[in-house]
Design a protein around this nucleic acid. Sequence first.
DNA 1: TAGGCCATCTGGTCCT
DNA 2: AGGACCAGATGGCCTA
Length: 289
Amino acid sequence: MSKIAITFGEMTTESFRCVTKAYQNVHHFAMTPISNITDSDMEEDFDDEERSYDRSSDSMFVGGSDGDHEDDDCRSITSNMSNMKESKDKSSTKENDISSPTLSEAEMDSKSKKKRFTKSRTRARSPTVVVRIRKNRRLKANDRERNRMHMLNKALEKLRKVLPAFPDDTKLTKIETLRFAHNYIWALSETVKMFDTNNVSSLITGSSATVSDAISLSSLKPSDFLPLNSPASVETYKPPTPYSSTISSSASPPNWDSETKPKLDITCNGTDSSDTTSRSGSESSFLML
DNA sequence: TAGGCCATCTGGTCCT
DNA sequence: AGGACCAGATGGCCTA
């Protein structure tokens, strides 16, 4: 049985189960995680196969799977088949180039040198081998892509952890997490801005207040950072009112889809934002992105 | 059952 | 040539 190497990075049991299931659905073979199988292992495997091919016919089967019919289960069958056909044509062309019966000895000699050189660079491979190599590359690419997405999810999970938690422990979806973070960062910047501008520290402890003091003073809740259309925000959303201040609608979180940076405009009762004494007016709102 | 979310596969493109 | 990144497609799971 020829081995099919699929390497995994760090993987949870659950994700491995999903992957296994997916692979079994698509490729119909039992999968075992194999770590650190090298390309040379692969090549070795294919070399064995190629040697076998040289000795036998085109129609040999290799491996514990469905052999050449594995791709029949793949979705992009037409594309694969056209690629296979293309590679088959190419390989057959190469093979034709190698064996020319009407050559002089000198020509044969130079040709054999050329042949040796050619073979060392681009070996003539049977269509079966070409398909298998192509399949192997695809599997490796799938593996990389899977790991890449896992890394992305890990980063997203880290982001979730640094965001304010919800009492009901609702797990934010990906898009909610990103929007939440976006609004949260915006709110923090606004808070810091106000903290600096209004010298809030003096309102708290006199001189050594921290930014988190200012944030807690603002009474912002996690739900305040959720976009309005978030399912998690339906019950709990309430526009934040930091320091009972008025943040004009133009000071809503910047829309990250927009090309231009939004201008943040904090107004205080129609006065300059440096006015620290009286803040009232319409409620601010962390608008949806 | 429809719709949302997610994981995965896949081929194309760009970069090193 | 091979890897990273991306977007589209697909199917599974869950919930209203």
